[in-house]
Design a protein around this nucleic acid. Structure first.
Lengths: 231, 231
DNA sequence: CGAAGAGTTGATACACCTCAAGTCTTGTGG
DNA sequence: CCACAAGACTTGAGGTGTATCAACTCTTCG
């Protein structure tokens, strides 16, 4: 259950502002002001934060935890669009367009986030135009990310998509060890498949193949050790 | 060859401004001011407007014609990302991020566009913050479009992707006639394939199948008649 | 420790890709 | 305006890789 915590023990409001790119250009005074209108919310692992059945017209900014952003099509198949972490935001579609929300956002871990209502964010943008610039930058990065994903799904062979995924995950979730890079997987095999446009079985087989080739080592269901030399 | 036309016979500078969403909120006075810094360029059908070999750090706004925005991967395969028409812009990646340009933009028809240098656009955004808001809106629409494309390439069967393409094209390029919707195709079969993540042969076969089913009628290489009842 | 859920592996089917040959458009030049 | 050549498209045959279905094994967590 989501807990709203205008003043809660979990977080230092001041420090969390600094982690958010779209507010990075603000002065301390301005940040204090933004803190006034932020509502903190807390979600447990597995909870739905947003879905077409439960639309919320506000901007969500991730403060702690990880979420997946998913499209579910008519036949029930999921396509993962984003894996978001600290500093990332979502909910922009409802804020800047009239398009009804068609995404599902689910907490992959216990997650804490800041929310700002549409009305208050609009007012904020008018008052502190620098934020709009930062939002443009962030949106452009996101757009570039999606374009790369379109290229990948549309015209890259599956093996290459797997390599790219391992590269991405080693950067985002990997830790260097003496034997290689240890990746803490935030997704199940099925979710990996839904990210890559494949089936769970194919992902299994591809990972097994890479293990046989000595590229990586599967450590239980939730960790992968990338052997050095291959990135 | 690109022709720069600060004052040219092709275009009425004033009227073209009104067609561009990102400038739609401006007063006449402000529009006049924007017109001062715009450089018009003209490209012939088939010309490359932008490519990694010829990066240009400016915002491009389409005034007349159509362009395709493409990613080309190492093995030479093309993935079409966007088909842009009047009022659309591109070049935002170079403007808002430090990411080197990795797209190719090619004129599908004789094309006229407005360009604004990075420096002047930055100044403009500071001076007229409403523009930044409009840019956010447009970027969000583009992002939503790309997310739909990711969903489509990642988790929709090919037949459904074809249907979606026909729907999209009938809206963008179709004209109502007594027999159905006549689509003027801006793309070759190969380009359609590069848009859908398929091969030219598969597109041919799918279209032939739809023709056999009475859904559409192929009229030469560049037109499709969508028979009524099926959208 | 045990049960439920997640993952793996195998056999088979099928859809798309590849390669190749042939046909049709289209636009140009006579 | 017609003929023709080049390019675009279509069609066929065969191969490949991923999806599907099913049985089984392994992790994980209460």
């Amino acid at each position: 259950m989501a807990v709203s915590c205008q003043q809660c023990e979990f977080c230092n409001h001041h420090s969390c502002m600094h982690r958010v790119p779209i507010f990075s250009s603000l002065t301390n005074e301005e940040m204090k002001q933004v803190q006034q209108i932020i509502v903190h919310r807390y979600y447990k692992k597995g909870e739905y934060i947003l879905s077409p059945l439960k639309p919320m017209h506000c901007l969500f900014i991730l403060n702690e935890g990880k979420v997946k952003v998913v499209r579910v099509n008519q036949s029930g198949k999921e396509q993962i669009l984003y894996l978001l972490s600290i500093g990332d935001f979502f909910g922009e579609t409802a804020l800047f367009t009239g398009i009804p929300s068609d995404i599902v956002v689910e907490a992959l871990e216990d997650t804490r986030l800041c929310t700002i209502s549409k009305a208050q964010f609009s007012a904020l943008l008018k008052q502190l135009p620098d934020i709009a610039l930062k939002v443009c930058e962030e949106l452009t990065h996101r757009l570039h990310r999606m374009e790369t994903m379109v290229e990948s799904l549309g015209s890259k062979p599956v093996d290459e998509r797997m390599d790219d995924l391992l590269k991405e995950f080693s950067k985002k979730y990997g830790k260097y060890t003496s034997e290689g890079i240890l990746i803490q997987l935030p997704l199940s095999r099925e979710e990996l498949a839904n990210y890559l446009g494949l089936t769970r079985e194919t992902v299994s087989r591809k990972l097994a193949k890479l293990q046989n080739e000595g590229v990586l080592k599967l450590m239980g269901h939730k960790q992968i050790l990338l052997i050095h030399r291959k990135k």
